[in-house]
């Protein structure tokens, strides 16, 4: 397999929109497709990717240890047991974002790109130091947005910052879409969000209660074959490899919706 190594930062501006969930599932999806993938948790002080991947008990060293020379890069990586092509470089839990500079992250990611085909950086919320670290080394960015005003506004601000940092390829993932609410006119549609932000749409992920189950068990939702969100993340991973994958039909017409439509009440 020949593939130019690429570093992608996953960001949002607003917190709690599903960045880490996206990184964990898309990363695992790429590994399932046979690519070597390293996930870097840049949220120093508030790490969570280890929990999402069920790797929390196997961490010995972290990102700050590597930067400070306490450990070697290779010995700090935590490999996934089932998917050894997937590795995690965890964030430090007891340090501060300000202790790491963007140039140091860039050097680290350049080193990782020699070994991995995909390096996914999980950006912290906000637009301060941690965010600047996460974008310093990126070749492209994925913006995770929820279809609500605060998330879209923050994302628009982030797009401006990414563009000023010369990151031109920015893709949109609209997460937590509730098709029923969109149909009832109470949630911004994906089209509306995309029109506002005017960037390429990479994925649409529905709201899915099964994500809570996956976070409880430490198994990314992409491994749950009953999950629509898992399927959506799998499609995103495939699109990142250049494959053309149609967007999921989020709302299957149930008997009740069909009857409602018959009487023009849905």
């Amino acid at each position: 397999m020949t593939h130019k190594s690429i570093a992608i930062t996953v960001t949002s501006g607003k917190g709690g929109v599903g960045k880490s969930t996206t990184v964990a599932s898309v990363g695992l999806g790429l590994a399932q497709l046979g690519y070597s993938v390293c996930l870097v948790d840049t949220d120093i002080g508030l790490r969570k990717l280890d929990l999402m991947l069920g790797l929390e008990n196997r961490i010995v060293y972290d990102l700050v240890d590597v930067i400070e020379g306490v450990s070697k890069l290779r010995q700090s990586l935590v490999r996934h047991k089932e998917y050894p092509k997937l590795a995690l470089l965890p964030a430090a839990q007891t340090r501060y974002k300000e202790e790491v500079a963007p140039e140091q992250i860039k050097q680290l990611v350049d080193d990782l790109k020699r070994e991995f085909e995909f390096v996914l950086l999980d950006s912290p919320a906000g637009i301060e130091g941690g965010f600047r670290n996460a974008i310093a080394a990126a070749d492209r960015a994925i913006l995770v947005v929820n279809p609500e005003i605060p998330s879209v506004r923050d994302s628009d601000r982030v797009i401006g910052l990414l563009e000023s940092a010369n990151l031109k390829q920015i893709d949109l993932v609209v997460n937590r879409v509730q098709p029923g609410m969109v149909r009832d006119g109470d949630m911004l549609s994906v089209e509306r969000v995309q029109n506002h932000l005017a960037i390429n749409l990479l994925g649409i992920v529905p709201e899915d209660k099964r994500i809570i189950r996956s976070s409880n068990t430490g198994e990314p939702v992409i491994l749950d074959n009953k999950s629509m969100a898992g399927k959506a993340f799998s499609n995103i991973a495939r699109r990142l490899t250049g494959e053309e994958v149609p967007f999921l039909e989020l709302e299957a017409a149930t008997l009740i919706t069909r009857i409602k439509r018959l009487f023009h009440i849905a």
Binding site: I149, D156, G185, L188, H196
Partner: peptide, 12 residues
């Protein structure tokens, strides 16, 4: 949603 859309247009 239409109200949200209008507000977003202005805010952005």
């Amino acid at each position: 949603a239409t109200r949200a859309d209008d507000r977003l247009s202005l805010v952005l």
